[in-house]
Amino acid sequence: MPSALEIRLCGGLLALNRLSMTLQNKRMPVEGLTLARNGAEVRVTVVLDCEGETARRYAALLSGLEDVSEAGVVADLEEVALVRADGRCEAVSGSPEYVERWLAENEVEDAVRLGPVARPGKGAC
């Protein structure tokens, strides 16, 4: 069962470097990583191929980093896909499963998927 973490960063590029280095250095089983932001704060959602207890331990490890303001396991994920179909660009959003289904069922020329990201205002953060 994959788990997801949301990590909020308060530093700049070095903070992001340190985060991705730590994910790699501690051999966290990263399946997906999405960057987003709210104002100056960078929000990173990481999907890990591990159960909840291990994910919580990783969250504890990441929250120990100085430029991580918060890190926690999140249950609710949201995905947005920007799709191009019939020459038009539109956004599809919903749970990752919903977006997956939608993309399989609809004919699209190209798609950019933004997510999964932690749904705002929920989860452990």
């Binding site: 207890e53 291990t54 331990r57 990783y58 504890a60 490890l61 929250s63 120990g64």
Partner: peptide, 8 residues
């Protein structure tokens, strides 16, 4: 003192 050591 390091929470990430628990269960590592």
């Amino acid at each position: 003192v390091d929470p990430s050591e628990m269960g590592k």
